[in-house]
Simulated scan of single mutants.
Amino acid sequence: MSNPYSEFKTQLQGSMVALVTPMLANGDIDYPRLADLIDWHIEQGTDCLVAVGTTGESATLSMQEHSDVIRFFVKHVNGRIPVIAGTGANNTLEAIQLTSEAKEAGADCALLVAPYYNKPTQEGLFQHYKAIAEAVDMPQMLYNVPGRTVVDIAQETVERLANIENIVAIKDATGSVERGKLLIEALGDRIVVLSGDDGTALELMKHGAKGNISVTANIVPKAMSQVFNAALEGDFETATKIHDTIAPLHKLMFVESSPIPVKYALNKMGKIEQGIRLPLVWLNEQYHNQVDAGLRAAGLVE
C-alpha cells in the first residue's frame, strides 16, 4: 500500500523561513505587518513558510494566539506556498490540541519540537511523537534542537518514527553535519531531512538534505532562496558563491537568543515595529553597531 504522504514530501525542499511574529511595542501581534512579511517572502522566492516556530516566539504566545496566528497564515498565504505550523509542546496532550487546530485551520504540515524541560527518555520521545501522529492525520515533522530543549532525539528513535507514515520529515538543528549525514544515510527516502542550522545547511545539502528552515532568511529571503535552489539542482558552485556573500549574517542573527537579533534587523529594515515579548527583550545596545554594520555590508540598510 502506497504512502498517501509521499507526494507532499516533494514540497518540503529549498528555502523555508521560520518567520518572526511581528508585534507592536506593547506586545500585541501586528497582523498587518505579518501580512506584509508573508507577501514579501512569497515574492522573494521562499519555498515554504513556518508559522509560530521558535523564531515566531511560540513559547510566549497563548494557545489561543498560537492557533489564531496559524489561521491567519493559512488564510493569507491562500495556497501560494505550503504553510508549516509549529505545534510542538512538552505536554503531549497540548501538542495534540495545537496540531489538531492547525489541521483544522488548513496548515499543510505540523512542526513538532522535541519536548523541552521535562527531559523525556528516548522511549518517551517515541511515544510522544507516535501519539500525536496517531491522533492527528496530517503530515508531521520532527524538530531536533537540543541546544534549546536539552533533549536530543537519537538517530535510532528517528529511524523508529520514520516507520509512521504521516511523519514525513525532520528538521535537524543540531548543527552537526556529521550527524546529519549519518541520519540521511540511515533514513534513505523514508523521511525528508532538512537543516535547521543556517551556518551548516549548505554543507548538509551536499550530503542529501533537501533544504533549510532558516532564521537568516527572514532578512535575505531572495538570496537564501537562490542558494538552496541552486543546491537542489546540484550547482554547489553557484550556491556557495551566493552563500558566501550572506554567511556573516548567520552569526549576527545569534549574537543573542533568536529571535532577538533578527527582530532587531527587521526593525532596522523597516519591516516590523519594535515589539518582542518577555522574557525576551530588545537587542542589547552593545550589539547594535555590530549588527548594523553587518546589515549595511549586506546592502539591507543604508
Score class of each variant (00 low, 15 high):
Ser2Gly: 03
Ser6Asn: 14
Ser6Glu: 15
Glu7Tyr: 05
Glu7Ile: 13
Gln13Ala: 14
Gln13Asn: 13
Leu19Lys: 05
Leu19Pro: 03
Leu19Ser: 12
Ala25Trp: 02
Ala25Lys: 15
Asn26Ile: 04
Tyr31Cys: 06
Glu43Arg: 14
Glu43His: 12
Val52His: 12
Thr60Ala: 08
Leu61Asp: 09
Leu61Met: 11
Phe73Gln: 04
Val74Asp: 12
His76Ile: 11
Asn78Arg: 14
Arg80Gly: 09
Ile84His: 08
Gly86Asn: 03
Thr87His: 06
Gly88Arg: 07
Asn90Glu: 08
Ala105Asp: 10
Leu111Asn: 08
Leu111Val: 07
Val113Ser: 10
Tyr116Ile: 00
Gln122Gly: 13
Gly124Leu: 06
His128Asp: 10
Tyr129Cys: 04
Tyr129Ser: 11
Glu134Val: 04
Gln140Met: 15
Met141Leu: 13
Met141Val: 15
Tyr143Ile: 11
Thr149Arg: 02
Thr149His: 01
Gln155Tyr: 01
Ala162Glu: 04
Ile164His: 12
Val168Met: 12
Val168His: 06
Asp172Cys: 03
Ala173His: 05
Thr174Leu: 04
Glu178Asn: 10
Arg179Val: 03
Ile184Phe: 06
Gly196Lys: 10
Asp198Lys: 00
Gly199His: 07
Gly208Leu: 04
Asn212Val: 06
Val215Met: 07
Thr216Pro: 08
Ala217Gln: 07
Asn218Thr: 04
Ala230Leu: 12
Leu232Val: 00
Thr240His: 03
Ile242Leu: 01
Ile246Gln: 10
Pro248Glu: 13
Leu249His: 11
Met253Lys: 03
Ser258Val: 08
Ile260Gln: 02
Val262Glu: 05
Lys268Cys: 10
Gly275Glu: 08
Arg277Glu: 12
Leu278His: 07
Pro279Arg: 05
Val281Met: 13
Glu285Gln: 15
Asn289Trp: 08
Ala293Gly: 00
Gly294Glu: 11
Gly294Asp: 07
Ala298Asn: 09
Ala298Ser: 11
Ala298Pro: 07
